[in-house]
Simulated assay, not measured.
Amino acid sequence: MNPRSSLPTTAVVGLTAVLLLAGCGGGDGDGDGDGDDGAKVADKASSASTTTGASASASPSASASAPSDGRPEISLPADDTLTFTPEQDSDPVKDAILKDNAEFVRALDAAIVAQNPRLPALEYYTEGEGAVAAQDWVQSFKKAGWTVTGTVRYTDRQVSVESKDRASLTYCGDESKGYTKVIKTGVIEHTKVTKNSYVAYGAQVQKNDKGVWELVKIASTRGADKCQP
């Protein structure tokens, strides 16, 4: 494949939401790994925008995120690294949204690695259309016999709070060092880095009665100018 988040480069979900998550290496490249590889298992679609987020240092995801407030523990293999910038915000509400968004992305990768579209951790951070999109996305990887590997950086993460329980956020994904891997053979699908290695995301989240900011919709634009290095 090769946009890892573009493995099945996207899973089209009901309405207009499109799932292009869990990062995945470059765009147009050698072999069969180009930005359209996902079409082998899922239809393509995209739409989203990003803005510049506050500054903060990014840190790689650990092999497991420590659970807190009843949240599930999420484990990722050593060869799958995700970083998030900024990790926090000076506003406590935005900080909570950023944290739960990062955990959602981590849960999505964990579900792909486990080849389990109904991974409890993924269901914990999704609802409605967002849950369907995430499950379809993971199912696409499972059907193709792929998993994810490498490093994906999520940057310029910015939150817009709309009400006490609804918000939206935008961010960029740098998949230039993220790839898909064939589970059966262990072969990593490398591709050269192109503009399609960079993806803009737009997500809608909603706070549930447990205080978790769940993903309810997501959209993406591969090759977005605002996310180019």
Rank of each mutant, 00 (worst) to 15 (best):
D174Y: 00
E87M: 11
L122H: 02
A114T: 00
T51I: 10
A22N: 13
D165S: 15
G202H: 06
A203P: 03
A219Y: 07
D36C: 14
P120M: 06
R106Q: 11
D225I: 07
G70R: 02
I183W: 02
A224T: 02
A78D: 13
R71T: 13
E87G: 15
R153T: 03
T51S: 12
S90C: 06
P229F: 00
V159C: 08
L20G: 15
E123M: 10
S61Q: 05
D37H: 14
G14R: 15
R166L: 09
A121G: 01
S220L: 04
A121W: 01
L108M: 13
G26L: 01
A11M: 10
W137G: 08
G145V: 09
E103T: 08
A42E: 06
D165P: 04
L169H: 05
R157N: 05
T81C: 02
D30P: 13
A39W: 13
D95I: 10
Q158M: 11
P86Q: 03
T185W: 05
G23H: 00
K40Y: 10
V12T: 11
V182D: 12
A22E: 11
L7K: 05
G53V: 01
G38W: 06
A42G: 10
L76R: 03
W137P: 03
R166M: 09
Q158K: 15
S140L: 12
T10R: 03
I112S: 03
S59G: 14
V41T: 14
P229G: 01
W137K: 12
C24W: 04
V12S: 06
S75Y: 06
P72K: 01
C24E: 05
S55L: 10
N208V: 03
F141I: 07
F141L: 09
R166A: 14
K207V: 05
R71G: 10
I97S: 05
G178H: 02
E103A: 11
A17V: 14
L98R: 00
A45Q: 11
I112A: 00
G23T: 03
V138N: 04
G128F: 03
V199R: 04
T50K: 05
A134G: 04
S75V: 04
G145A: 10
S61Y: 07
A111M: 04
S75D: 03
D34S: 09
Q115G: 02
D109Q: 11
T83N: 03
T149N: 00
D225E: 13
S61R: 06
Q206K: 15
Q88D: 15
K192D: 14
T81Q: 12
P120I: 07
V18Q: 14
V152T: 15
T155F: 06
D165Y: 09
P229K: 01
S68M: 08
A219Q: 12
S160R: 12
